[in-house]
Design a binder for these strands. Structure first.
Lengths: 192, 192
DNA sequence: CGTCAACTTGATGCTATTCAACTTTGGTGG
DNA sequence: CCACCAAAGTTGAATAGCATCAAGTTGACG
């Protein structure tokens, strides 16, 4: 990688792959997210667009110079990196300790919140989201198989936690209920 | 938290807890690691010393000023944060896709490498490590129960991948074999 | 020598995986 | 326009792997 970039529109995923093909998503790149690693020139992850994607790219060298000469850019980048670190650690809790059902509920809640913050709408009461990921991509994010993802989505639907139109369009009648199913603190103390 | 710190000697853990008590370790703080979050004043994690611990602490406000006035300090901090991010993502792969056996092998390999890099010895062939964690702490790191940790350590011992003296002293006759059991690339392409 | 925390081991149960068949959806060309 | 096809998703049955519950064992320390 000899450039860094910022996502303008669309969605991409950051994935790590083992020798035998097992895959784990380690980051979800949504609009406003930063991609790339100043100070290192090899990329340890696969970046894959899951929708049409527009990124704003910068050559890495000039960008690194910019950081050194403009303290505020460096500081902003540090802040964003710390946010990504928080997200990764949230992911560790999800992967290590949550049940399949909680994982699905968590993912839907994350996507709904990100979507709401982009549109500057609020995520309380009745909320609507379009899943930008296939069941397989969700399974890679959640450390599950795609069958388990499908089953748990069906279970949440049958119990009225979510409603589904088509395959990807989700209606959340009561966002707090979903958050409760996710096993998170009710306040949902979120950082981004 | 109104201070940040650097670990001088000893070992601490960074842990996240769910309402019902489930715990997931999200970071292992070894000598030279940085603790704290400039720019944010609430700590989302529990920091727990697992051995006698010496840390070098700084008040947060003056430290934040230092970052702004001294670009190189900020840049170094960004680098360290990016390394932590890599470690967290490595953790996501471990938690999401590795088997219990692979998780144990991975943890022992990580500890052996960190130990070797501190002592500036190399981690090839015959390697010796003292586990600085209880079985319970290991289970919190690996997203397992302590019983599973114990069983998998016994299994690795029975198969000759490791030898054990006492409860914590581990001898690794062939480090490459251990790395293979961990499911990582054979080159062990490591970043720290 | 008794006590306690750390650890080990066994038996059983449950959750998520695996393998397999089937359904739905959106796109393509006759 | 619709028949066909591939990709995505659903559902079922059987199984594997880890969790849970329950005894034990070991070793350090007073």
């Amino acid at each position: 990688m000899d450039f860094v970039a910022s996502v303008v529109s669309g969605i991409a995923t950051l994935t790590q792959t083992m020798e035998d093909g097992r895959r784990q998503m380690v980051g979800l790149l949504l609009p406003s997210d930063f991609v790339g690693r100043p100070g290192r020139d090899t990329a340890a992850y696969d970046v894959v667009a899951t929708t049409d994607l527009v990124m704003c790219c910068f050559r890495r060298k000039p960008f690194e110079d910019l950081i050194l000469t403009t303290p505020h850019v460096g500081q902003r980048l540090l802040e964003m990196t710390l946010d990504e670190l928080d997200a990764a650690r949230e992911g560790m809790l999800l992967l290590g300790r949550k049940t399949a059902r909680e994982k699905i509920a968590s993912l839907i809640a994350i996507l709904a919140r990100r979507d709401a913050s982009l549109k500057q709408s609020s995520s309380v009461g009745r909320v609507v989201v379009d899943l930008p990921l296939t069941r397989e991509a969700m399974s890679e994010y959640l450390g599950l198989t795609l069958e388990t993802v499908s089953r748990q989505i069906s279970a949440l639907r049958k119990e009225g936690v979510i409603e589904i139109e088509g395959k990807r369009h989700i209606i959340i009648p009561d966002f707090d209920l979903l958050v409760e199913e996710a096993g998170d603190d009710s306040d949902g103390g979120f950082l981004v």
